[in-house]
Design a protein around this nucleic acid. Structure first.
Lengths: 236, 236
DNA sequence: ATGTGATTTGTACTATCGTACAAAAAATCA
DNA sequence: TGATTTTTTGTACGATAGTACAAATCACAT
């Protein structure tokens, strides 16, 4: 793409609206919602604080637009991958394909947005942790359908596991996914540099491998403990 | 008998300092650090805003004191449980005992603090998501030793799995643990009421069961993919 | 070139933030 | 008790928050 110096030498304004969205996404995803001011966002985008108000009315509106921008494409891509995964005949392979269909779009963007998949997922993780109200509403009404579809698909390939266990394990999957994006440095640190927590491909493989095994674990029937419980008594 | 209360435990109000700490812990854990004002904390504790400054100097100091209050007891209890777990002879049982030793203290408090284990762990999750600087420093220098001890112990009971994989999987464990405490309602919702996300005992059993299976998954040797990879192609 | 609507800028308003500090109250000790 | 220390209260200050709004500027069809 050839740069067109149509305006002044500081020609970095193809679309100020997009720049603000990108800056806000990055700042929210790393610092949380309340720690970032509208002025911070404007400065990072090379814009004036008033521009934010002009384009998005309020700070909440800005967050809302970030979600609107990503939710559609990501869920669409997940649906496509899930449909493809369901056509896998071998039951074990199918389970892995389903998990992969859930994980991959969270790391790699599904649409034209430049590599923002991981960033947006991290944003969701942070908003979820902060109990952000705007995010909570969108999440519940946008992702629950997708989550149910995945849970049902997994349940079909693991019929002997109660649905309750599937729900718990898919919940753990999302938590692990979120945390991998929130503090990748911890992986690098604890592995003493042997692993790179920021490597998306590596994280995906590790996550898929571990999660498939977790789903395949024997059912947890609270009526009768299958094996003798290891002693962990200890009184304080 | 005239008791001489030379100690500072005066009966009038059960220590305003403790009330402030408890209120701050609760508010920080549910709303994040920046969303909660000192005035919010004071009001929730039935205290005056000035009291917070008097006891803890700054808002950061208050957070710091919360960590200081919990880190010691929780790590101590984890060490005890880990030591006990390492004495389990059967390798599979030992692995489960180790995982349990890691998970249980995060849900149930280890010391005199009233049921604050889960609350503090949730606080850690939220601070981690927000990238809080004060928390990051304490966490790295307080929990990394413990984490390494657990990773080593798990590695010993799974010698054929590379340490890198163990690190990733224990990272997933912490993420799942955090997320279970952050949004337990999601479990209740997705299971259509069949599971209670707020039930600590149930969450622990599910988490231990799933995590043990994840740790026992075959190693992920990136050199040679063991099985044929399920097709998930799809181009954008 | 010029007029017109869209965008950007600069600034100002009010609310609330963390924190400081002096006075009041309570607790402790001689 | 009275003296002294500890704790609580009330208030105020500077900084910064989100947002509103008029003026300035830009893009572009005519």
């Amino acid at each position: 793409m050839v740069r067109k110096p149509t305006s002044k030498e500081t020609a970095r304004k193809p679309n100020m609206r997009e720049a603000i969205l990108a800056a806000a996404e990055e700042l929210f995803a790393t610092n949380g919602f309340n720690a970032v001011s509208v002025r911070d966002i404007a400065q990072a985008a090379g814009a004036n604080p008033g521009s934010v108000t002009y384009h998005f009315k309020t700070k909440d509106g800005l967050l809302l637009e970030i979600y609107r921008r990503h939710c559609g494409p990501m869920n669409l891509r997940r649906s496509e991958l899930l449909a493809a995964a369901k056509r896998v005949r071998d039951l074990q392979d199918r389970l892995e394909a389903i998990v992969r269909a859930y994980v991959v779009p969270a790391f790699t963007s599904g649409s034209d947005l430049a590599g923002g998949g991981a960033r947006f997922t991290r944003l969701r993780a942070v908003m979820s942790a902060e109990g952000n109200e705007v995010a909570r509403k969108i999440i519940a009404q946008t992702f629950d359908d997708t989550s149910h579809a995945f849970i049902d698909a997994i349940h079909e390939s693991l019929p002997h596991i109660p649905r309750t266990d599937i729900v718990w394990r898919s919940h753990f999957l999302l938590g692990a996914l979120y945390y991998s994006l929130v503090t990748p440095d911890r992986v690098s640190r604890l592995s003493r540099g042997e692993a790179d927590g920021s490597d998306a491909a590596g994280a995906i493989e590790q996550l898929v491998q571990a999660t498939v095994a977790a789903f395949q674990a024997p059912a947890l029937d609270q009526a009768a403990p299958a094996r003798r419980r290891p002693v962990v008594s200890s009184k304080t």
